[in-house]
Design a protein around this nucleic acid. Structure first.
Lengths: 250, 250
DNA sequence: ATAACAGTACTGGTATACAAGCATCAGTCG
DNA sequence: CGACTGATGCTTGTATACCAGTACTGTTAT
């Protein structure tokens, strides 16, 4: 076996976030979004065959997506039994909260003297959009995501976002369980404004304080939801995926 | 279609860290270890077919393992071109450093009043083992891993370890590039001892300070390695996997 | 009625076959 | 001698077939 190779630049392949429009990536993003938005509610059975048929692809990309989601903790796979959307595990939510808080606060410590002007402008627009009255819940979540991501970007540690995003995913999924009936995005939008102002003022300590309060408020929100609807959460980490009798007309 | 389901407890499946002895898990752990220990050096070509043949399995588990490793950033997959062990990317190393420092320092803030006695004893033994003269480099890395993991466990945020472990993996891989010729584990072992003592004394501030110094020292170590052997690092994030002419007798 | 047993339809894990695309090689033409 | 071009062997992505194992069904024996 002889192989002759030459140096090649694949920069373009990695450019942007799209990388490559492969079936697996599409399925992965689709399923992840559906899990996080509760379109696929916790505990749902995810049959590889059914998903493949529904999405018009073969089992392979579906299966590979499920493996990734399982690694992220959004899905549980039981060999020879089935795959299920993870119940919202309070322990995991707490871990996500801890991790997110640690990273986002540390990022505030590392803010440069002069901030990226474009990013600042973008964040300003974002905050304005958050203040829109009667804003849709899903739209708020999108803006929230972009805000926190942008804030992390200001500290030149933007590449750490994927880790935070994973943690935030678990938190948001828990929040969505109750946000539709209770929470008011306006409060959180105001907290975002406070944090941003502190950052603009170069007041790291205040920014940290406000950020911590904000993130803790989010966590409190989740705890309230849990006490109100405990059945949506996993009672214990190793709990069974409770399968129920389902009848469907064909 | 009608499906009758019953509640079942799969706790045992999740018990421990083993979960299930599946081929994919074995391959994943094997490859990950080989990448982190530089047994598979940065830039190596990883052919799914060759790996499958070498490991005595089919492409499927190999491929799924590569996907997971790619998600962790240890491997790069270029469709229709090839898969390669990631070059050590300074940016990614810096991100890993930032993330790890944020989490491990935050954990020290959350230490409970009275520590888990068993874990403390385990950590004491671990530190003693680290002090052994003429300790093997790989053995030191194992002990180092267990030490930091145990320290995180003391704060009841042990479940966040997997995230830290991933970051630590990138850092350790960079360190291994130069540790064999230069670094002395004894220095780091002493730093571990200092941190641990501060924790035992319930002196959070000192523990944080020592931990920060320790982690920064590790990072400095890597920077030194980089300046000494820049060719081992990726010059830019989108760099090409440089393929070289290889001739092999069959 | 109830408990035990075979049957069956489903699961995910694995192996394999095929398809699409890239990089090199060999030949050819200018 | 250099540039172009089809052939070739590799790569990963996808689809499919088969396997071992599980959990339900319906029947049978008690």
């Amino acid at each position: 076996m002889h192989r002759h190779f030459r140096a090649v630049d694949y920069s373009e392949c990695m450019a942007g976030s799209g990388r490559q429009r492969t079936n697996r990536r599409v399925v992965h993003e689709t399923l992840r979004r559906q899990v996080l938005t509760l379109e696929l509610p916790p505990g749902s059975a995810l049959s590889e065959n059914e998903l493949a048929a529904a999405l018009g692809v073969s089992r392979t990309p579906v299966r590979e997506s499920l493996i990734l989601l399982a690694e992220e903790g959004l899905v549980q796979v039981f060999p020879q039994v089935g795959s299920f959307v993870s119940r919202v595990d309070p322990e995991r939510v707490a871990d996500a909260q801890f991790l997110r808080e640690a990273v986002e606060l540390a990022a505030l410590d590392d803010l440069p003297a002069d901030l990226d002007a474009d990013l600042v402008a973008e964040l300003r627009d974002n905050l304005a959009a958050q203040q829109r009255p009667g804003i849709d819940v899903e739209e708020f979540f999108t803006l929230d995501e972009e805000f926190h991501r942008g804030l992390l970007g200001l500290s030149s540690h933007g590449r750490a976002w994927s880790t935070v995003a994973s943690a935030k995913g678990h938190l948001d999924r828990a929040r969505r369980l109750g946000l539709y009936e209770a929470g008011s995005p306006a409060v959180f939008a105001d907290q975002h404004q406070e944090i941003f102002q502190a950052v603009l003022d170069n007041d790291v300590e205040r920014a940290r304080s406000r950020m911590r309060r904000h993130l803790r408020a989010v966590f409190e929100d989740i705890e309230q939801i849990r006490s109100r609807s405990p059945e949506l959460f996993a009672s214990n980490s190793g709990a069974a995926p409770v399968r129920r009798n389902v009848v469907v007309w064909e």
